[in-house]
Design a protein around this nucleic acid. Structure first.
Lengths: 192, 192
DNA sequence: TGTACATCAGTGAACGCGCGTTCACTGATGTAC
DNA sequence: TGTACATCAGTGAACGCGCGTTCACTGATGTAC
């Protein structure tokens, strides 16, 4: 009960608090002061752990990216096995997971793929999600499930299309169903 | 020279000034006061013409959307005619124009497709760019240039992929060449 | 076990800022007779 | 053609705000001897 002078894990607590604030209000409307206040800590306490506000947001972005990666990992785990069917399911599931993440956590999605995190070399190309997509496509290709000649550049199309449709959905330009339509169309165009 | 009391066309001038500010610094870093100052006008003058700041930004967004539409119209005009080749060139050109707009005017692109303009029912689905894409795809389809069964849902894929890749390029997650790669891959997958 | 001291992680007051917006006002313009 | 008046489009001062960040400080903790 007694609040000790030293918080003990302020850095983690601030990131967690900031994460919730971002999820709810978007990264643009998060302030260090509000986070500090929510944690009953002085506004300047953050500076013992972070160089500035953006550093906190980047940490939040890392959490967001990890959450996306975890969703994708869960999908892979849900469709194990060596069969062609499982390989197809993994591919479709990854796309759905990406879009679901955007729809369910739009503010986090915007932060993760927005300018603040982009500047922090936090690129998804070098991390989990992209690697999982590449692996899934390679798997399909190895199994001869891709249309002839389709593999080349397919990463970029699939990522781009998923990302674009996710963005357009969360801004209200496309209906939610566009996500499923995309998966179906990609299957039809690239898989045999 | 003599600055008259009445500006004469303040609304247009503010939008133009705001447009330049958005292009240069991004919509997030534009302030009404700075715009007013640049036009040698009091900070409150804007309120005779706009209900609030967002109204100015929406007007800027409309300009941005018009600029995108004009680019696309220019591409169509550059490839006139009834031949299959022209139809393919129009389709590829539209995609390239979309991505070029994003790359050359990233801040405008972000504003046009961002939350502020999305709230203002300024959707591109109901306006020039999207209609041009649909027409180009219908044209290809009529000519029998699409892979069998590909037309359905293709608008969404193509728009989504273009939008996603454009976004990922301007945030630095994909290289510029990804745009051309996308066009090539879409041709390969959907056209015959 | 006790003590001196360095370091860590907080405090809280303040700086300095720019912002969107409101308000009472006034000069300029247009219109009706 | 001249005059009265309504309306339009500005002014400029002020309100009230929250923000990121700095700074000198101090209480708590850990370590060496």
């Amino acid at each position: 009960m007694s609040r000790s002078y030293h918080h003990g894990a302020l850095a983690e607590a601030m990131v967690e608090q900031a994460l919730n604030a971002v999820r709810e209000h978007g990264a643009d409307h998060v302030s260090l002061r509000a986070i500090a206040q929510a944690l009953d800590v002085s506004p300047s306490a953050a500076y013992n752990h972070f160089s500035d506000k953006d550093a906190v947001l980047v940490a939040v972005g890392r959490c967001g990216l990890a959450a996306l990666d975890e969703r994708m990992a869960r999908v892979l785990a849900a469709h194990p096995g060596d069969s062609d069917e499982a390989a197809r399911a993994r591919f479709a599931g990854l796309g759905r997971a990406y879009i679901a993440f955007a729809v369910e956590e739009p503010n986090l999605f915007r932060l993760v793929f927005g300018p603040i995190c982009a500047e922090a070399d936090m690129g998804p190309e070098s991390s989990g999600p992209y690697v999982k997509l590449v692996d899934a496509l390679d798997d399909l290709d190895t199994r001869g499930l891709l249309v002839a000649g389709a593999r080349d550049g397919l990463d970029v199309i699939v990522w781009g299309a998923s990302h674009g449709i996710a963005s357009l959905i969360i801004e209200g330009y496309l209906p939610r169903e566009a996500g499923d339509a995309l998966i179906a169309s990609m299957d039809r165009l690239a898989l045999r």
